[in-house]
Amino acid sequence: METKSRISLFYPRRTGYRVKNISQQDYLQNYNYQYSYPAVLNRLKKLDNRTSKLKFLDKAIKYNYWHKPAIFTANQKSGKPRSYDNEILINFYKLALKLAPRDKKYLTGLASVYRMDNQIANAAIIWQYLLNQNPKDYHSLLNIALYTQLNQREHAFEKSLHRLNKINPAETEQVKQLLNLIQHVPALKPNYAVDDLSLWDDSRHYIVILGAALTIHGNIKEKLRRRLAAGLKLARLQPKAKIIVSGGQVPQEPHTEASKMIEWLVEHGVKRQRILKEEKSRDTVQNAINSNLILQINDARKVTLVSSDNHIQRAYALFQSANYLQGIDYDLQNYAVHETGPQIQPAVHKIISDMLRVKGYWLLPDIQP
């Protein structure tokens, strides 16, 4: 009997990797065989030059970033929340920096993962190093100001803003406007009622339903079903409003989230021509950027954002940011889906990072815009 290679279950793609329909256990076995830390160390020993080793590390970093949710869903022994286990990414960046100690891409990437892991002090050491190499490195100075000085060292923050303004005054003005938006995020309350929103029945009103991860076999999970049900309720009350479904395809999903969302809405009575599809987004930042492009083209004047209550504040802030940066002028409301369990306030440093990505700054160079 012929044995099928585990590697054949994966095939490359321009922006990452896709996965065929396999079980979670098979998924984990293939991960352990190819891109786990021990597997990567073993592969590096077999590669005979620095360039090939760095190229493989780039692939391993990209794979672990995009596949992390599926990996930690399958591996229940990790003991960490699946979205916050950044140790392996940190280790891979350190391996890359042993091979290329001064490479800005890997230094910036490591600092970003440290920031994601809330290791701000370690991230700041790298940003300061990059700034010492180039005193006009706007991004490094901005990171130092926002993550180590904001709300803690007012004088140092104002001094950094002054330096940033000298380097690029137009860019700094936009950053200040984004910071003003952040200040209002904690005051935003999830809206669970549709009474006031029902007054928005208008042909230039758009109901934007944000996607959520599908199962590894491409089925809708309960979280996304609840968001769709909320959007459907709103759409029935507002027959003139159009609907945007926003959700692309992360590597472990066999379909785009938007395509499955359309199927669900049509099955529940929504006319297909009423729905606009945004299927390039892999996360909330891209949801905001790509959905706002559609809103801009269609001259939207009113927008209701539909998502889970533990997600709505961050999503709202990012849509506001995209609205401002892309020069669109619409009224924004939210309609929240109640999630079970305690509502978690979004971390300010996470919102800042995501707002900067809406602005166009990289999180992980060559991996995550």
Rank of each mutant, 00 (worst) to 15 (best):
L146I: 07
Y335L: 14
D299W: 05
A258Q: 01
K105I: 08
K302E: 12
D201A: 09
Q29I: 04
Y93Q: 05
V337S: 03
G218H: 05
Q345P: 03
N180E: 14
K136H: 12
Q152G: 06
K104Q: 11
N334K: 07
N118Q: 12
D283V: 07
E267N: 15
G269M: 06
L232M: 05
F92S: 04
P81N: 14
I289E: 13
K242A: 09
K136R: 14
R204G: 01
I275F: 08
I7Y: 10
L265V: 08
V185H: 00
N64S: 08
D195H: 10
Q249Y: 07
L146W: 04
A187I: 04
P81M: 10
A121I: 13
Q296D: 11
S140A: 15
N334T: 14
H268I: 04
L178V: 01
N21T: 11
S321P: 03
V306I: 11
K55L: 11
L197V: 08
I275N: 07
W264F: 15
L232G: 02
R274L: 02
I182K: 09
I275D: 07
H139T: 14
L214Q: 02
L146Y: 07
E173W: 01
S353I: 02
L197I: 05
Y192V: 03
D329S: 15
N91S: 15
R18L: 12
T148L: 02
A288T: 00
Y147G: 06
I88F: 05
P186C: 07
I367G: 00
S78C: 11
Y330D: 03
Y330W: 10
A156H: 11
Q320L: 14
R227P: 04
Y37R: 13
E154A: 14
A70R: 06
V306P: 13
L199G: 08
K166D: 12
V208P: 00
L28A: 07
S8E: 10
E279D: 15
K4P: 00
S5Q: 03
L188Y: 10
Y17P: 01
L332T: 06
N118D: 11
A315D: 07
D48G: 03
G109S: 01
G247Q: 09
N323V: 00
D196W: 01
R13S: 14
I244H: 03
R227Q: 07
Q133H: 09
F319I: 13
W66F: 13
K59T: 15
S36V: 10
A230L: 03
S5Y: 00
W200A: 13
K62E: 13
